[in-house]
């Protein structure tokens, strides 16, 4: 599904991604972990075509198509969907109307769209926010749930989730985890999920975990083992381990 080879990305004149190889196949969920500032968000933004993230070299292939020359609009149309870590506030744009517009653009009839909206907002406990302006006055957890709902409703083939679990309480983590799992079990979807804390890892079934440090993927392996190691020893252990490898 997604294949990165030697990817180097600049952001604001600085090289942030320094040669990343990564492969994610259908029905896989890859966890991407790493300390703050290691380049995880930049990587997801570069994949989806955020024009601020300039691909300097390397390739980015999605379902056989080279993405580097495509605009974000085109990439989204191909089936990439990014859930932002910090989605903006949209004053005057109600969550309900945003969802309905996304669904109508997906070709759903008005009635179908209303039905899907109701189902998902119940699933993610967002009913009370539908008539509020998007992200205006949302709590941290509410913003994360709303962002997940919008990303899932786009129905992407590859789901890119940027820290969906930060600031979310335990109960809602389970809710979000089950929504993500349910989504991935529907025919051949895949996901890359950035988690800083690893909390969400308890609620989804990941196929592989990767640790990114200073713009490079330094370690890949069994998600359960890696998450528990990192939770116990922190990324400091990864840094040291990486040095040891050299």
């Amino acid at each position: 599904m997604l294949y990165l080879k030697g990817l180097v990305v600049e952001l604001g004149g600085k090289t942030v991604i320094k040669g990343v190889d990564l492969q994610v196949n259908r029905e896989e969920l890859a966890l991407l972990m790493g300390p703050n500032g290691s380049g995880k968000s930049t990587l997801l933004h570069a994949i989806v075509g955020d024009k601020r993230c300039r691909v300097v070299s390397g390739s980015l292939v999605f379902n056989g198509a080279e993405l580097t020359s495509l605009t974000m609009e085109e990439r989204v149309r191909l089936g990439l969907g990014l859930g932002f870590q910090f989605p903006p506030r949209l004053k005057g744009v109600r969550l309900r109307s945003l969802v309905l517009r996304i669904l109508e653009k997906k070709g759903l009839s008005k009635d179908e769209a209303e039905r899907v909206l109701e189902e998902y907002s119940r699933l993610l406990r967002l009913e009370g926010l539908l008539d509020k302006d998007f992200n205006v006055g949302f709590s941290g957890g509410e913003a994360k749930r709303a962002e997940l709902m919008l990303t899932l409703l786009q129905n992407p083939l590859l789901l890119l989730l940027d820290e969906p679990d930060s600031g979310v309480d335990v109960e809602n983590l389970a809710l979000m985890g089950s929504a993500i799992s349910r989504y991935l079990s529907s025919n051949g979807r895949a996901a890359i999920l950035i988690t800083h804390t690893g909390y969400i890892a308890r609620h989804v079934k990941a196929s592989e975990a990767h640790v990114m440090i200073d713009g490079r993927i330094v370690c890949s392996g069994d998600p359960e083992e890696m998450v528990s190691n990192i939770m116990e020893h922190g990324f400091e252990a990864c840094v040291n381990c990486r040095r040891a490898k050299r």
Binding site: D50, M72, L82, F84, P87, P88, G92, R101, K106, Q154
Partner: peptide
């Protein structure tokens, strides 16, 4: 119009024109 908002809506699957009109409509609310 904030670039960040435009980018966000394009990532949500809208064309740039649609994104602009959503933001303007929000502004007029």
């Amino acid at each position: 119009i904030a670039e960040e908002e435009l980018l966000y809506l394009v990532a949500r699957g809208f064309t740039e024109e649609e994104a602009r009109s959503i933001i303007v409509r929000g502004f007029l609310s």
